[in-house]
Every structure is written in C-alpha cells, then in structure tokens.
C-alpha cells in the first residue's frame, strides 16, 4: 500500500470499507438538473468546462465535507466553483439568485435545512 500521506481522500481504491449497499436510487429532479447543466456547459458547442475540471473541483472539496456530501452535491459544488473561477457567473449574483429562489420556495411552503 502506498504511503497514506501521499493519498488524497478521493483516492480510495484498496482501502477497507463495509459491505456494498445495493439499494437502487431514484434520481431527484435537482440531481438530473445538475447532471444536465454539466453536460451542457461541457458540450462541444460551449466548452465552458471539462470533465477533468469537474473532477478536479470534486477532489478539492475537503475530506470531511467530501464524505458528508452526496454525489451530486459534490458535482454541484464543483460546477459552481468552476463557473465562478472562470467568471461565467459572479459570486454576488449567485448569492442574490439563491436568496431570491429560497424566498420563492419558502413562500410556496417549502422548508430549508
């Protein structure tokens, strides 16, 4: 086994872990939306980011947060960070937009975490 200090947290091949839980997953709409956004921004017409950049963004998520996040939470975090880095979207407009949507959803009766 390689030196654990050289291993990053996403690089888990060969480590110990519990049994594989085989339940099937029904994808939430927001998860499909995240996947669709990624495919659109990385397609050959737009080329705003690549799969490698998606992965790099996922691998940069800190070890504890990485383990707490679901799969598409990691994706959405990486996509957003990549688009912010590239200046495709800006942090202030993202903040405004998220606040606006949160207010809209709460007005419709939803509750946030």
């Amino acid at each position: 086994m390689q030196d654990p200090h050289l291993r990053r947290h996403h690089d888990m091949g060969g480590l110990d872990a519990g049994p594989v839980e085989q339940g099937e997953h029904v994808y939430d709409p927001w998860e499909k939306r995240t996947d669709a956004i990624m495919r659109l921004v990385s397609d050959k017409n737009r080329r705003l980011m690549t799969v490698d950049e998606l992965r790099r963004g996922i691998e940069e998520i800190g070890p504890n947060v990485y383990d707490e996040m679901t799969y598409y939470e990691r994706w959405m975090t990486s996509i957003t960070n990549n688009l912010l880095e590239k200046g495709v979207i800006h942090v202030d407009e993202l903040g405004r937009k998220m606040a606006e949507i949160e207010a809209r959803w709460r007005a419709a009766g939803a509750t946030g975490e």
Binding site: W30, T34, M76, T80, M98, I101, G112
Partner: peptide
C-alpha cells in the same frame, strides 16, 4: 415537499437560472 431543501438544491436551481 416532504423534506427540507438543501443548499446544493438551491445552488442547482440558481446556477441553472443564471446560465
């Protein structure tokens, strides 16, 4: 409707709308 929405769900909605 039956579970609280999360930060990343809000982000997915917001990033999609901005794009």
């Amino acid at each position: 409707e039956d579970a609280p929405f999360t930060h990343c769900q809000l982000m997915a909605e917001a990033v999609g709308e901005l794009l």
